[in-house]
């Protein structure tokens, strides 16, 4: 069942089309990576889902209920973590979560229990200082705690790792991975390594349209061309291989490494065969799977070309 369903969603700011007839579905229990360049329309889409921005056209359903701008009925199913979560700096984390709990209508008893467990989950349970003294990472973790407070069916995280150092990024990703059992996550980012690490499904938005969608394996399978690298110990062997297989890019310190781009599995096998048949012993032979980053750049370049035509 789809927790989030977006149908032909459109939004423009003045003359600029930000979202263009976007269709998207997020299945329950998954982590959906919503990727795209800065300004691609990720935040705009998310703000429309939580009812903070009015759509020009199209409909959004959260847990089967239609989202209406200004009304926040569907927000009972959503936990939202903005890109830069802001809090009342004069409060402590516990006080802030108590305020949020009162707003969501939780009872005092259940709120206290939930707040303790969430602060433990995000590693702020021992922290008694006011939010004024929090680092960026601590604020993001508190943001996740507030977003999870009402046990949402859908957790929306808008670039939660963008401004964090590697340690902070890892902490946030670990938390998201841990809460996957409880909730569906829509996670926007432009850090593709984060998507590869935790997401089940990926949707790539470009110029307001979804240009690529699927599991990471499916997306990689759609683009089977890979690179491979081969390294030899001496120049003579290296040159013999080039004569037999073809010219590749010379890389590395001594120019004894060769990189062949966009190769099929047949050419990979052929390279191996040449090495065996002609006794050209490589020091290293590496088949390089296409990274999401490479696919991302290729898709964007392809779409830019189509756009220009």
């Amino acid at each position: 069942m789809a927790v989030l369903k977006i149908q032909r969603l459109s939004k423009r700011f003045g003359d600029r089309v930000v979202i263009d007839a976007l269709n998207l579905e997020v299945e329950a229990g998954s982590i959906y990576g919503f990727i795209g360049q800065n300004g691609a329309g990720k935040t705009t889409t998310m703000r429309m889902i939580v009812g903070l921005l009015a759509a020009d056209n199209g409909t959004i359903y959260v847990n089967g209920e239609k989202v209406t701008y200004g009304a926040n009925q569907t927000n009972q199913y959503i936990g939202y973590l903005p890109d830069v979560p802001e809090f009342y700096h004069y409060m402590t984390a516990t006080e802030y979560l108590q305020l949020c709990a009162s707003i969501t209508g939780m009872t005092q008893k259940s709120a206290t229990k939930r707040i303790i467990s969430l602060l433990t989950l995000v590693g702020l349970e021992q922290n008694k200082q006011r939010i004024r003294g929090y680092s960026r990472g601590m604020k993001q973790r508190l943001g996740i705690a507030q977003a999870l407070l009402n046990k949402p069916k859908l957790l929306i995280c808008d670039e939660p790792t963008s401004a964090l150092d590697p340690v902070g990024r890892k902490e946030i990703l670990d938390i998201l991975q841990a809460v996957k059992k409880e909730t569906t996550i829509l996670f926007s980012t432009h850090i593709l390594a984060d998507v590869e690490r935790i997401c089940d499904k990926v949707g790539m938005i470009h110029n307001g349209k979804l240009v690529l969608e699927g599991t990471i394996e499916e997306i990689k399978a759609q683009n089977p061309a890979c690179d491979f690298e081969i390294e030899f110990s001496d120049e003579q062997t290296c040159q013999s291989f080039i004569d037999l297989f073809g010219k590749g890019n010379r890389i590395g310190h001594e120019n004894l490494q060769l990189r062949y781009k966009n190769q099929t599995s047949e050419s990979y096998e052929q390279a191996l065969r040449i090495c065996v048949e002609h006794h050209l012993l490589p020091q290293r032979f590496q088949w390089m799977e296409p990274t999401l980053e490479k696919l991302f750049i290729e898709v964007i370049q392809k779409n830019e070309t189509i756009h220009r035509i």
């Binding site: 939580v50 903070l52 903005p82 802001e86 305020l99 949020c100 707003i103």
Partner: peptide, 15 residues
Amino acid sequence: EKGTFVNLVTKGMKR
């Protein structure tokens, strides 16, 4: 300016 209303409104706070 700070954006502090966002968390509360998305939590269901009536405007």
